[in-house]
């Protein structure tokens, strides 16, 4: 439905630009994930996010059964800065067609 010229992705960073003021999903190193509203970003992928839910996934091995125990630690942070060098992937919300 949206204007076509606005939605063209000529370079990868356009994908981030199109996600400004939208809720995005960010995958970071050391098994951290963030979901929040993208307020600003730069070419390093430094980002300002608001209303953020952070999920940290840890896997422990049970000493006796050797089973993997996957733990998801969640917390919410009102406003934060993400340093770009930790970013692996950024996924915008699903674009409506």
């Amino acid at each position: 439905m949206s204007g076509e010229e606005e939605a063209t992705v000529r370079e990868p960073l356009d994908l981030i630009r199109l996600s400004l003021d939208e809720r995005i999903h960010v995958k970071l190193r050391s098994d951290r994930e963030l979901r929040g509203k993208l307020h600003a970003f730069d070419q390093h992928l430094n980002m300002i996010l608001g209303d953020v839910e952070e999920v940290i996934t840890t896997v422990e091995i049970d000493d006796e059964t050797y089973e993997e125990i996957v733990r998801m630690t969640k917390r919410t942070i009102q406003f934060l800065f993400v340093r770009g060098d930790g970013v692996i992937l950024v996924a915008p919300p699903l674009r409506s067609t």
Binding site: P12, L13, L15, D85, L89, V90, R95
Partner: peptide, 11 residues
């Protein structure tokens, strides 16, 4: 699954 995804090149 992601509809769109941006992957940072250093990875």
């Amino acid at each position: 699954k992601y509809g769109d995804a941006f992957i940072r090149g250093n990875n």
